[in-house]
Amino acid sequence: MSDVADRPVLLSARGVTKSYKTGAGPLRVLRGVDLEVREGEILAILGTSGCGKSTLLHVLGWLDEADEGEIHFEGQNRASLPGPARAQLRNRVMGFVFQFYHLMPELTAVENVTLPAMIKHDGFGRWGKNHKQAENRAKALLALVGLQDRMEHRPRQLSGGERQRVAIARALMNEPRFLFCDEPTGNLDGRTAEDVRRLLWDLNARNKQTMVIVTHDAKLAHQADRIVYLEEGRVVHKDEVDVVEEVELG
């Protein structure tokens, strides 16, 4: 993986801070994070619970706004884009996988997977023209994650591992360049977690998909191209994958 450092930077964060209001005053979650994500790499953000990993992921994925600092995607500053443009970019360029899957309970697996395409092709008559193609892609993605027999099942009829695979298929629906994974194996047993990890790594190998994975699972993080360790809202160690052994795992 020594070639990762040569790849262009797709996403960068500079001096990102974020705090939340609490009854006891502002809670500073991110305290000046600098970070770069390069094309096609798997970057693991490792840290203990409450260190600000998920907040950082949300800020990087433009779901949340930083108090200070800049987030650049391919050189474009997040702050310069209006809300609808940010939403459109999130829809077309980014995919999200969450620890608790976050599937829509009313929709079947194939409908859940198709949802990002429905949002993409929103507008009078546009979905009507694209729905067949999207439907076929959703089925193909479900087959890719091994759920060809579960397409019409609703989330409550699926196991945890199956739900996470549906969530991964959904994240891939619009062929995003980025995949943001928030504790993707955090809610799964060991064997299922390994299946999901293998699936993500296969996707990266096959599609050169850039992934940012937030985890407290050291075993998962060790297999990433690069690990960033976050402690109390600060990046305390950033290194290439060949020095990953030096990272202290909480």
Binding site: G61, L63, G83, P84, A87, Q88, L89, R90, N91, R92, M94, F96, F98, H102, L103, M104, L115, P116, I119, K120, D122, R170, N174
Partner: peptide
């Protein structure tokens, strides 16, 4: 509420 978060994460605008 969680569906609203999901829709936003998937790129639905506020008007959506």
């Amino acid at each position: 509420t969680r569906d609203i978060g999901i829709l936003s994460a998937l790129g639905a605008p506020k008007t959506g």
